[in-house]
Design a protein around this nucleic acid. Structure first.
Lengths: 330, 330
DNA sequence: AATAGGAGCGTAAACGTTTACAGACATTGA
DNA sequence: TCAATGTCTGTAAACGTTTACGCTCCTATT
């Protein structure tokens, strides 16, 4: 179908090894033949077969990006960073969506390994890390976004979730709130656990006891935040403020508050986490904790590339600083 | 590193051709050896090398998804549909982002071809279709989302943009508006052109002349909608309603109207296009034209698969029906 | 004039699979 | 008993590259 290196060799009257060398700018080929080959290649519409090349070089210039929910605006932003950095370096990226399922995550990792990706960027879908460790032990390189794994073949890029959550809750405390609810995300996910921990720490450091009634789990999506908050608001002692584990959840919280006929932030203050682009809409103006999503994506790819080049063990942990963005919901 | 078919063959005491047959469930291998091979494969942690397989079968079980802006919530929804359908069938998907650049689109297509993808799903970034036609002529299969290309190797899945825009504008007309602005998206994109055409048709059929001052181009993002609408609202005869080429733009329009101190929908009514998930937020309640994003993604993959199986020329054109969703901004 | 070195190129092996073909052996039917 | 058939397996080629090795000239050095 498409011409191969042999077809070019035939017409150029040289061996196909020479063609390969010419195309790859190896020095040991004469100017004359290089030009002849290059010209023929263009003329014949030659496209190198990356599969064949990958088979021998053991480098596919391909990475896997495994995300829990591409539908959550936090992740596309990260993905864009990854994709941009990757394509600048001539890499392509496989996108995998897990729907927060550890099983689907594992399946995807399997598939990607078989496709011989040069590395993984994964935002873990659960605390079930055994299959992640397995691929690292198998020699694969990976960088983890939001979720830390200590392994020589990996680097973790995380925001300080505990600190971020603490900042969020302290902000509410400073505003005078004492009854602060927590609407969590998917259970057994590091992100959620850490943010909950930050919530606890903030309350503790202010000498406020945990009110377990005020602590609910959602699903990191709007629907969960909505449903769970409705329950919260019907408590006898309803919270005067709510910290949501992420912005999507916070949007659900806002909706619930509104539907219960309460005012924001007068009756109930709300703080989210992520600072997705929709948090800044004038109709929303959600107070939240910002993370450098796009940069995290770029950084993740850079680190992965770096690990592959100089392949001394990395085991790095990059901790980014969260930033409180105060808007109108608090 | 990882064991190959030959390693298994060695330990099983058979030739590696037999191992291959056993692993692929070929009928001509005895039950005994099949079981021995399968058992050894599991024990040794064998993972087939999809690259090597792809080289001989010329099937990589891999497709390319080329999108203009993964950051626009419309596309992740489509992507999720594609991804889900793909992984159900054992396919992986390359994600490519073009930032609405025709050049980057072409670069991505190049790269994907070299990686021997089995097909493309692309939402064209411009009306510059020559490079798309080129890959089709080269024998690649593709399905196009929102953007129609007539070629035996392609099928197009589009929503009837003209009709949708018409519905949007007619809705505004019925509400009594006569001065209706159009805030467009990126220029020379089919989606934008068709929606503009629908806008014109609606006005014409009601006998209303085009007011070129009321017609502006944005960038399919919030920023564009915001900036451009500010201009619109400062016209002497400012529009009483605005049709935005997509929801992201509409969000910018809403913001502009708000910042100009005008009321929605009393002073200015707004209709968008896409029905992204954030359009339904209680704080937004954007009237818009809905498209079945997730289903479009799934369908796109199915059609692509189908083209590859029964490879008679397809040249299909699937036109989906838009749906007007009336909310509070009109 | 002889030799060393280098430039340019070809040969062949390798990467890990799939698969056409052929061979070995057992089974069946006459 | 022999041929014919069928079942299972092995051999080898192929997919499109890269690259180690070696060969042939040519040039420069002594």
């Amino acid at each position: 179908m498409s011409p191969t290196i042999k077809d070019i060799a035939l017409r150029a009257g040289v061996s196909y090894a020479t063609v390969s060398r010419a195309l790859n700018n190896h020095p040991e080929v004469s100017k004359a033949t290089r030009e002849k080959v290059l010209h023929l290649a263009k003329e014949m519409g030659y496209r190198p077969n990356a599969i064949a090349r990958g088979l021998v070089t053991k480098e596919t210039r391909t990475i896997g990006l495994v995300l829990p929910d591409i539908t959550n605006p936090f992740f596309p932003e990260v993905a864009r960073g990854v994709e941009e950095a990757a394509s600048e370096s001539g890499y392509s990226v496989f996108l995998c969506n897990t729907d927060w399922s550890s099983e689907r995550e594992e399946e995807h990792l399997h598939a990607l390994m078989q496709k011989q990706v040069d590395g993984f960027i994964v935002a873990p879908s659960s605390d079930q890390l055994t299959h992640l460790l397995k691929i690292l032990d198998a020699g694969c390189k990976a960088v983890f976004i939001s979720g830390v794994i200590s392994h020589p073949n990996s680097v973790s890029i995380i925001i300080d979730n505990v600190r971020g959550a603490q900042m969020a809750v302290e902000h509410l405390l400073k505003k005078g709130h004492r009854q602060i609810g927590f609407v969590g995300g998917v259970q057994d996910v590091a992100t959620n656990n850490e943010r909950f921990l930050g919530y606890r720490k903030a309350l503790e450091s202010w000498g406020i006891g945990l009110e377990w009634d005020c602590i609910r789990k959602g699903d990191f999506r709007r629907e969960g935040g909505l449903a769970v908050t409705k329950e919260l608001l019907r408590l006898e002692e309803r919270p005067t403020a709510i910290f949501a584990a992420n912005d999507l959840t916070a949007l659900g919280v806002l909706q619930a508050v509104k539907e219960e006929g309460l005012a924001i932030p007068q009756d109930v203050a709300v703080v989210g986490f992520d600072d997705i682009q929709f948090a800044s809409l004038p109709e929303i103006e959600l107070t939240t904790i910002a993370q450098p999503k796009f940069q995290m994506g770029r950084l993740a790819f850079q680190k992965l590339l770096q690990m592959n080049k100089e392949d001394g063990p990395a085991k790095e942990r990059i901790i980014l600083r969260p930033k409180l963005v105060v808007r109108k919901t608090s």
